[in-house]
């Protein structure tokens, strides 16, 4: 499934720059502790988190997640969008809970 398809199905807001939504999503991971995410998320995962600070950019990039989904209406801290755009990281937002998002993803697969 493409990120764009996931975004449409779950009514996600695109926070980062357009142009990379063709990327394939192959799994899903929920986590806010960055070391856990680094060590356990699989490449291609849609990473659902409520962590909004600048370090999510490094983690998403190094762990090769397909996209970051900020749950529960969380907005990224200043500078996060710019950093993610620089590194081609897709950031999406939603008012849904992490559980609702993951359950929504599961229904699509």
């Amino acid at each position: 499934m493409k990120v764009s398809e996931l975004a449409k199905a779950l009514e996600l807001r695109l926070i980062s720059a357009e142009g990379y939504e063709d990327r394939e999503v192959t799994g899903c991971y929920i986590g806010d502790l960055l070391s856990w995410v680094m060590g356990r998320a699989e490449p291609g995962d849609a990473w659902i988190t409520i962590m909004s600070n600048i370090n999510i950019a490094a983690v998403a990039s190094l762990a090769d997640t397909a996209c970051v989904i900020l749950a529960e209406g969380v907005v990224p801290d200043p500078g996060v969008k710019e950093k993610c755009d620089m590194q081609d990281i897709i950031v999406l937002g939603s008012d849904k809970t992490a559980y609702e998002l993951a359950a929504g993803y599961a229904r699509l697969t």
């Binding site: 960055l34 070391s35 856990w36 060590g39 962590m51 600070n53």
Partner: peptide
């Protein structure tokens, strides 16, 4: 609060 300090840093390094 920044999402660090889970006590997974060194174990992760060893693992990978």
């Amino acid at each position: 609060n920044l999402g660090f300090g889970a006590g997974m840093g060194l174990p992760n390094i060893k693992k990978y």
